[in-house]
Design a binder for these strands. Sequence first.
DNA 1: TCACTGACGTTAGAAGTTCTAACACAAGTT
DNA 2: AACTTGTGTTAGAACTTCTAACGTCAGTGA
Lengths: 221, 221
Amino acid sequence: MTTTRRERYREETRDEAKRIALEQLAGLGVEGVSVNAIAKRMGVTGPALYRYFKNRDDLLTELIRDAWRDLAEAVEASVADTADRPRDERVRGFADAYRAWAVHQPHRYLLLFGSPLPGYHAPQDTIALAHRTMSAFIGVLAESGPPARPVTPSGLDGQLREWARSRGEGEVDPAVLLTSVRAFTRLHGVLSLEVSGQFGPMGFDPALLYRAEVDSLVRGG
Amino acid sequence: MTTTRRERYREETRDEAKRIALEQLAGLGVEGVSVNAIAKRMGVTGPALYRYFKNRDDLLTELIRDAWRDLAEAVEASVADTADRPRDERVRGFADAYRAWAVHQPHRYLLLFGSPLPGYHAPQDTIALAHRTMSAFIGVLAESGPPARPVTPSGLDGQLREWARSRGEGEVDPAVLLTSVRAFTRLHGVLSLEVSGQFGPMGFDPALLYRAEVDSLVRGG
DNA sequence: TCACTGACGTTAGAAGTTCTAACACAAGTT
DNA sequence: AACTTGTGTTAGAACTTCTAACGTCAGTGA
């Protein structure tokens, strides 16, 4: 596919707008992402940007899409880097990469996992991008085979199996899926509270709390 | 303290505004909470409301304060109701009350735990209200004495002890604190993802996942 | 009872926001 | 060279928060 000069310029303009939007996001939160302000900083008038983004929601959707892709690439890189290491080390590597991504750009993590934009419905490709991170996680955790685990609430096994089927990854042991999802929610639990500043007044280091969770994860707790 | 007719009327007006603000929050998210729109629905003009709230942030702070108080009262009620039950049942009671509060009014849960308002700094009394929920949780979990538990990352014990001291609750075993905080982050992990709709495309019942976490919690996992 | 003070609501308006419409111009295409 | 398309402009509608100035009316003290 040939890219004309115009197409290239257009892409650059879009990228510049998104770059500035991310700065606004970091500084002022999602409410502070203003089409007008972005345009002004780019040296054009407000309405000019509507040639590049259908509306503000469209711009934010792009930011969300990019963030999911970026997160997926970060954890996939960790998985690739530890390809020939023992399973526990790979799990730790994943968890560390995941946390690093989150705490180095809390605003983007919040964009993905914080309050949903009202009326926003994630497009299909965004959901697929989100799945990539989960798949990488399941892949690493599944390495030592189905884990021993306590009683599963009735019904969940079937639902997890159905979920795996819909992801098109063939037959995955529901025990692995449950372990993965629970591990994920636990990591997210710590990260979410850290990134939204809830640990602030408590005065202890969230990284240590995170490590405690990772420890119990590799131990199979 | 005597309340004059004026004071009572003023309080009613504030309450009505907050009531409508909560409806807006539920329907349109925090961005949809508009001073102007609230005033219109109350049958007055926009600027009139500025006699009752310093500005929009002040109104939102009130909503946050109310939500923390409401949450604390909900879990404290559960704790009181199960006063003479065995410890495990009390833990389950707490977890159920906590989840019920969150899923019945997801917008309020997100107001407390979702993306923080940019530039918002929680006033001291709000932090104290948030602590009430945590204290109730610690209280129930502490009942069977310090739990057996795996290795604690070095440094965390001291920080937890310091945190307990600053809360003015005397000497609490750091093991209990760690268990409490970790239990809390795990419950929050599931709730947070549920309430922000992340489980939507996955098609399984978050309540079952939550139960799995509660199960492992009472088992001391 | 009269006068005063303070609370409350109004309109006007400044400075933002998103977003559409109409227009101008320059850059590719035929 | 003429035409089409992309990209920018200004104008403006309909919102938003929030301040200022101005009535009006209720409650209080003399």
